[in-house]
Write a protein that binds this DNA or RNA. Sequence first.
DNA 1: AAATTAATTTAGTCTAGCCTAAAAATTTAG
DNA 2: CTAAATTTTTAGGCTAGACTAAATTAATTT
Lengths: 218, 218
Amino acid sequence: MLSYSEENHLKAIFHLSVNNESGVSTNSIASKMNSKAPSVTEMLKKLSEKDLVVYKKYQGVLLTDFGRKTALSVIRKHRLWEVFLVEKLNFKWDEVHDIAEQLEHIKSEKLTNELDKFLDYPTKDPHGDPIPNPAGFIKYTAKLVLSDLLIGETGKFIGVKDSSSTFLKYLDKREISLGSNIKVIHKEEFDESIHIGLVETNLSISVKSAANIYVTKL
Amino acid sequence: MLSYSEENHLKAIFHLSVNNESGVSTNSIASKMNSKAPSVTEMLKKLSEKDLVVYKKYQGVLLTDFGRKTALSVIRKHRLWEVFLVEKLNFKWDEVHDIAEQLEHIKSEKLTNELDKFLDYPTKDPHGDPIPNPAGFIKYTAKLVLSDLLIGETGKFIGVKDSSSTFLKYLDKREISLGSNIKVIHKEEFDESIHIGLVETNLSISVKSAANIYVTKL
DNA sequence: AAATTAATTTAGTCTAGCCTAAAAATTTAG
DNA sequence: CTAAATTTTTAGGCTAGACTAAATTAATTT
Ligand SMILES: [Mn+2]
Ligand SMILES: [Mn+2]
Ligand SMILES: [Mn+2]
Ligand SMILES: [Mn+2]
């Protein structure tokens, strides 16, 4: 039975492993966990002891298959609960993350799988992130950021890179929501802002925002 | 922000306070918590420090209004989650308690209240126990145990005293479920067993079982 | 290639939550 | 109303998980 802290460390390592062939560094984990390096080192020893990671002093750390599967099980629960909160309990997409951080640690496979069924087997969470299946398989969708689109190109808004409450609420205010088709109308040279067209309206947004919006080219 | 252990102690004290005017004893709490007296003493000092209980050495302990409200909030969450598991996720009444023990500690008032709404404001949990309202008000129903009924009397099955998985599954097997009207047909002198009549069938059950079934006289 | 800088680990400390054993207070009994 | 039994508290210890400061190893510069 893993502790919350062990599960959270595994999750952090998993997220840091994406696009990172070599080992994950102690400091990067500490920074993601809002803790300090010595706490991470101690945890790595414990996780290594339990065969959840491969750890060699000063060499960074990598998940074992077992560790990866465990991390994905936590992520699966996190995302399913986020769907539940939005779909069934009237939460907004910017309100669910903190609660899901708590719910992801509830231990009951039956609960997770019944929840999955109850939600009709969703494949994406409210932020567009893929939901791993019970076996720990996760289906990634090719995506690029809106700021990479050229003038005249259109993309479908499929996810956010920055999922902070602030950014999510900003998108709500501008009525940019998951699934929207966004066309790049014009790029301003002076401040690099990007004029975009939604189904109805046209808007202008900063590069910073555009760099945080995942799209698939249409 | 209270810890799980603090919340669990409050819950234990609350349950031990029912029908117990004077203070709750250290040992009774330890026994309910599956811990030892010194651990309880230590916790009582902490809870007292936080004004959740009134504690005086060797004098037992009582909840303050604040402590009582806090305990009831945990119990409210526990019972709402049990309803959710049974009503929405196909759990049986004997499978929900352990999961609710985890879920009752999730911190989000909005979550609790939205869940309540989603479940259409249930007043009883799957075991017949009343669900406190958001203000911490709990509505008790007058009840007696089946074994107290006299021959010829009929009672409506409204709750269980023993809510162990074993007993609940036994009731399932005998097809005795919440809401059933149970008539006492005969009491066997030899082994004190009680012959009862359900809507259709007649059964015989032990005094022990009968002493664990709450009914209201019809 | 040595020196400096940066990253990581070790050493030692702290708190929460639990424990056992011993001491003290309260209750029960003779 | 003392004496024994019971209950409760204190004392001291342990583990998990966090931290700071110091030491060590690795990486980067000159
Ligand atoms: Mn999230
Ligand atoms: Mn998400
Ligand atoms: Mn329960
Ligand atoms: Mn219940």
